[in-house]
Structures are given as C-alpha cells and as structure tokens.
Design a protein around this nucleic acid. Structure first.
Lengths: 294, 294
DNA sequence: TGCCCTTGATAAGAATACCTTATGATTAAT
DNA sequence: ATTAATCATAAGGTATTCTTATCAAGGGCA
C-alpha cells in the first residue's frame, strides 16, 4: 500500500533533483525523504539513477511521476465536486406534485437554457412518494403541499397562493349542487385542491366523488380550456389561472374565505442543499414573484 | 492526507452496506472500519447516512466513491506501464552508427508498419556519442562496434559479420597501392571499417588517409553504386553488400584473414530493457538471420 | 595530495498512527 | 422483557514514520 506522502516526496524530488532541498521544501528531514524513496523503490523497482551532480528518472520513475499527476487531477476533481462553487453546473433533481410541477417545469427548462451545464431531472408524484424519494436520496429536493414532520427532512416554505374556483364565463353557481350540474374538470392535484376549497366554501359538501368528472388533463395550459368552453369547473392556484390566455372565457367565483395552497420545499436535513439546487430554488421563487405582479 | 486504506474501507462499505461485513471482507475489525470512516468524515464531511436497515451515501459520499474509482483506474494504468506486457506499444529508442543504422532503420520501420502503436526513435552517431546517449538515458538502446567496459551498461552481442573489400567487377588489386589508384568510396563508418580490414590484409598499410577519397554517401543503398561504376572501392559488412541489387557489377576480394564486424547492443544495467525494446531487438536479429541465408 | 563541504544512506530511538480488545448504546425481532 | 446484531468509542498494544546521529562518497579548492 503506497503512502501518499511517499508520492508527494517523489514528485517534489523529481522536480528539485536533490534530496536535501526536497526535505527543506517539504519541511521534513533528508533521512525521511530517503526512506520514502526507499519504500517506493522496494515496491516498484529502481526509480532514480543517482548521479553525482543530479539524478535521472528511470522509465519506471517516469511512469510513477505520470501516475502522481493523475492522482493530483483526480483530487482536484474531488475538491470541485465537494465544493460549494458550482452553482451553474451539474444536475438539479426535483420531484413535485402534478399541477405545480407542470407549471414549474417550463421555468426549470428556461433556467437550463440560460445555463446549459445544468441538467434538470424532474418527476411528478403524489405527496407520499415525494417524501420517500427525498428520504431515499433519489431526488435532492421535493415540493409538497403538506409540511412533513420528520427529523430527516428540512421543510422550507416555498410558495403560498390562494386556490380559486374557476367556472365558465357567465356562470354563477349558488351551491355545490350547481357545480354538480356543471361537472368537474380534473387534473393531477384536482381532487386534493377541490376537496379543500369546496368543504370550506359549501358547508354541506362532503366529497368530490359526488360530482361527476367531466374531463382530465395533465397539461397545465390545457386545464382551463374545457372550463372556457363551458364543459365544467375546476380548482387551481391563482398563479396557474393567471397564466391562462383566454381569461374572458372564464370566471373566478369570489368566496367568503380564502383557501390557501402552500408549497413546501423539502430536502435532507443531514447535509446542506447543493449550491446549484439553491440557485434553482431562488430562480423559481423570483419567477413566481414576478408573475404575482402581473 | 487521506490514507489509501481508508478509501479501500469506504469503497467496500459502500458496496456491502454494513460495517461488520466490510470488516470481515477486509480481514480487520469493525472498530478499524469505524475509525477509517470517521477519519474520512473528519476531512470531507458526512459521507454516510446511518439507517437501521442499511446505509445511504450522501452526495459527498457519492463523490468520494467516484474519486475512489478514478484512483483504481490510475493504479491500473500504472501497473500496465510498469508491466512487461506492452511489447507492441510505445516508443522504441535506438541510437546506432551510421552504416549499420542506415541498414537497420528500414527494418525498424517495417516493424512499426506491422505494429502501428510502436514509435521508432532513431539516431545516427559515432560510438562515443552512442555510449553517452544511453548513459544519459536519452536512448534506451544503442549499437556500438566496440564493447564498452562500464558498470552502468550491459553489452550484449548483437551481430557479427565479416567485413568485405568490395571493388568494381573485373578489378583485382594485388596491393593497397592498387587500391590507392582506385580510390576510396567513404561512408559514415568507412574509415573505421577500412582501417581495420586494410591493416590486416596489407601489412604495409598505415592509414586510410593515404588513400584518396573518391566519394561519400550516407545512403546504404547508394554506397556500392559508385563502386559498381568503377569509381572506387569500399569496405562494408557482408549483410550490406548482399543487399546490393547489381551484384554482377562488383567483386568481393577474398582475403587471407577475415575481419569481423561485431555489433554490441548496449543498454542501462540499472534497469531491465523494456518489453517492446526486447521485442524490437529480437525482430532485428531475426531479419539479419534471414538475410544471412540469402 | 589533503582538507572541507555537501549529499545521501542507514541505524537507532522517539513520536505518531493504526490496529485490536473491550465496552456500552441503540435497534429490531421474538 | 430478552436476545442478537450493529456501530461508536476508549484504552492499550503494535506498526510505521519521523528525527538525530553517523558514515561513506564525491567534488571543489588551496
């Protein structure tokens, strides 16, 4: 087993060409250097030709010197990987619920376009799967709508948007039965959002299953299309509704109480979020804030 | 300074997922493994998440594992460079006298054609320079016509060929004065060879300088051309004469005593000849043997 | 030639690193 | 509650690495 200190001594010796000056350079005695080289030669055969004025490397010596340089390069690469510096390089892995993920993913892709050395790895999943994926270290970050209570996870407040009841323009439902007549346009987080909003808005409402589903899509840009055409109602966060192009074809029902849709960013508590993941999170927050002003 | 044994323990632990089994695998105690990982974590931060059923690598742990694999590859490359295995890859460096070198170089090039990963580095030089170049480790091998007496050099007998006195066809010199009339066709080893042969063949002969030089060339294939045209005589090893195409235009004078031209292969005594150099030497010897049969 | 200085190898002892043994805490299974 | 497995840590034993001291060899200078 080759001691790295031996290799260090060899490298400097090859450069300096003199045991005594190598020892001074490394802050040890000449005898230590002599021993280091002796150890290396025991294992690898003659590395140096000692001549009175200077020394020459044998072919094996040259090979070992090349190996030392390779080790240095590998170590530099390790330092780089461990460093905090690389915020625009490498993989960003994020797992999100369906609807917010569909909305955020194009933003992530814009970030990647701006920094091509970033690689976005994203996946949609329900809340429970998101927690497990982050705990299993399959994804560095996740977004969930329920704050987890786990010592292994950090949960940072990411976004808070009111949920909105969106119906076709000209409709004015007075009860949840009116909505039952209309029908529900579902999406990946449809059930969760609609249940939370409707139980709060209509005291007699029990379950979204009492309302017939009139459509389903997992394309954010398409969820409000059937609503605009009078095919049903849906429940979405405000930022998603604001992104819809034909706002005159839909209507937001004002309710007595707001139902907020919170998103929590989760990551492992045992180690810090990587620089690039932090960078991506800040970028997403900025983009959401910019859209809130529209 | 990271101890390679620590890295070895980490690599096996990452594979096995359990301190106790890693210890068994490596033939040390569990406490030793625990210490190794502890040392690594001191320097590099958390590498493992200890879970009850198995353990997970942190991102830093993954980076370190990649580093370990890079080190393994570098070590393999070192072993390969130090090994005897690479006999048809890499540089073969040879320094020779002019005439034998001119003859041997095309053979070396044929070898390189057969094995394109070999690289021939060749140079012509007089005997003294050849010795120095090998001692200086500028060339791995040299050919000399005088066996050196040096503790730093190994001298192996390489070839032995009679020197021949070659005159134009139809000539029949009876004394060296006849040759003086004819004139000498010189080449890089011309003086050396002619002196040795003529002092042996003609007792009154003193110096090649007593004979006018009628030509000089350093192209082996061209040395005998002026001889064939009657412009002068020359002295060459038999293998060189045999390679001449127009043998009917020249004549070899039979002498009472043979003068042999010995070639010695020299290389450094402190380390063995590389596999590829050995291979090249064997190839050259075979080619010379094959030509001796023609 | 003799003397002096520099340099590297090596022996011996001091200092440090690494390993083993022993122990305790934690977790999971029964 | 008990048992077994696993890991962390303290303490002591062993191995390795370092320093100090010494000697041999070579080169330069008077």
């Amino acid at each position: 087993m080759i001691n790295p200190q031996w290799l260090r001594s060899f490298t400097v010796l090859a450069e300096v060409g003199n045991f005594t000056r190598t020892a001074n350079r490394l802050g040890v005695t000449q005898a230590a250097i002599s021993q280091h080289i002796g150890h290396l030669e025991e294992q690898l055969g003659p590395l140096l030709i000692r001549r009175s004025r200077q020394m020459d490397l044998t072919p094996a010596g040259h090979s070992l010197l090349a190996y030392c340089h390779e080790l240095e390069q590998a170590q530099k690469r390790l330092q780089l990987r461990l460093s905090e510096g690389e915020k625009t390089k490498g993989e960003v892995s994020l797992i999100t619920p369906g609807s917010s993920g569909l909305f955020l993913y194009p933003l992530l892709l814009s970030l990647q376009q701006a920094h091509p050395e970033l690689a976005m790895r994203h996946r949609f999943a329900p809340n429970a799967d998101i927690l497990q994926a982050v705990l299993d270290n399959h994804y560095e970050m996740g977004l969930v709508s329920i704050k987890p209570d786990s010592t292994h996870l950090v949960a940072e407040h990411f976004a808070e948007e009111p949920l909105e009841l969106i119906v076709p323009a000209g409709h004015n439902p007075q009860s949840w039965q009116d909505l039952q007549q209309l029908g529900f346009i579902d999406h990946p987080d449809g059930h969760n959002m609609a249940t939370r909003l409707l139980t709060r808005a209509y005291p007699g409402f029990r379950s979204i299953l009492d309302i017939p589903t009139r459509g389903f899509t997992n394309q954010v840009g398409l969820i409000l299309e059937p609503v605009a055409r009078g095919l049903g109602f849906t429940v979405l966060p405000r930022y998603a509704r604001k992104a819809f192009a034909h706002s005159s074809a839909i209507k937001v029902i004002t309710l007595e109480y707001n139902t907020m849709d919170s998103l929590w960013l989760i990551y492992r508590a045992e180690w810090p979020l990587s620089a690039r993941a932090k960078y991506a999170v800040e970028y997403l927050k900025q983009q959401l804030a910019a859209m809130a002003l529209v």
